[in-house]
Design a protein around this nucleic acid. Structure first.
Lengths: 201, 201
DNA sequence: CGGGAGCAATTTGTATACAATAACCCGTGC
DNA sequence: GCACGGGTTATTGTATACAAATTGCTCCCG
């Protein structure tokens, strides 16, 4: 639905075919994720994310996920590193095809990052990142990826695995940082110059 | 209530004198803050924070609030800096008395940090920090402060103001970092050695 | 023609009742 | 004596009804 549009709990309830009670809980989550915002007096609107909003999200994610990579470097088990390798093989296969399978890429990508966050062994960090990495935003970002962007992601993951294998926290953090920062610039390039607000629906 | 104890929504509703509907929303927030946790199958328990849990909270807070201070350094208005000075004068007064007024210290301290977070102009950052800085934990931490600890906090704030006045982001971040890291060690000293779990009620 | 008071309609907040699911107790068979 | 079901109780999840609050419209008055 359109950014900035007002929406009522009742409408969402009818759309989803459930009563307002569970809708209210879902709305609370979407408010936490800043996908819905409440007007001055409790009325509900769909959020309008500017380019700057998305950059800020990437900056925070870089900070937190970099920290996760740093912690994971000294905590990942051999099995977890093997899992990362397996997942990234799948991700690479999804991308190396003539026409990349973006859905499969996204699923593998999420799995990859989940292993790292899990290995960081910090429930609070995991929780903050869950709030930050919103599916709709990631999805829109991924749509703007070219095949070369996707391949570069796969290579970043390979280097992350190398950093983990070497048990080098600084290396891991640095790779994660450039990985995410590049993702932001890929997105920014697609969205266009800084001044314009993002009007995607 | 005791850590680890089971609690039901019904009990909380009776205690607060409202129905389960608003209680459920409040419980959701407390779950977000990890003050309540759900068992494997949705049953509700009051969380049991270990010393490591609290350290992790401080580490994350240091990272995020350091970032906030860095951004604030180049964004704070003259009025906001003046507000920080006023708030810290009040904080200092509350602490310099023979018997420090801890409640007043806490309120001034919160106001001080709120100005900085507000000046950072990042709604997402503000939201993450709100989830992180839990009143009960801060309260328990503050109880362990000696008069000298409180005075050191006031001096930290003074140095932060100096960093802001100089418009030096790196300085601001560094001061904020040591400010929060010291707070953690003050807490850790009071709680005791690392190995023990925190059993406060 | 403009401004404001008051009423109607919309929207969110809360209470209550009921449905679904999980834990617990107890007896039975081996 | 112990594992396994069956049924009862406890607890969470959802629907519905109603209360409170906010908006916006309308109509009256200057």
């Amino acid at each position: 639905m359109a950014a900035g549009e007002q929406i009522t709990e009742d409408q969402l309830a009818q759309i989803s075919g459930v009563s307002r009670t569970p809708v209210r809980e879902a709305v609370r989550r979407l408010e936490d994720e800043l996908l819905l915002v409440r007007s001055d007096t409790k009325r509900l609107f769909v959020a309008d994310w500017s380019r700057d909003d998305i950059e800020e999200m990437f900056v925070l994610r870089q900070m937190l996920e970099g920290h996760a990579a740093e912690r994971a470097a000294s905590r990942l088990s051999r099995e977890q590193i093997a899992a990362l390798e397996a997942v990234n093989r799948d991700l690479t296969a999804a991308v190396e095809q003539a026409s990349p399978d973006v859905a499969r890429f996204l699923e593998a990508n999420r799995a990859f990052h989940d292993v790292i966050i899990d290995a960081a062994q910090s429930p609070r960090l995991a929780q903050l990142l869950a709030r930050l990495v919103e599916a709709p935003v990631v999805l829109r970002t991924a749509r703007t990826y070219t095949r070369e962007d996707l391949l570069q992601s796969a290579r970043d993951h390979d280097e992350l695995i190398a950093a983990f294998t070497a048990r080098d926290p600084d290396w891991a953090r640095a790779v994660m940082g450039s990985h995410l920062r590049r993702a932001f610039h890929t997105f920014a390039r697609a969205v266009g110059p800084t001044k314009e607000r993002d009007a995607a629906a």
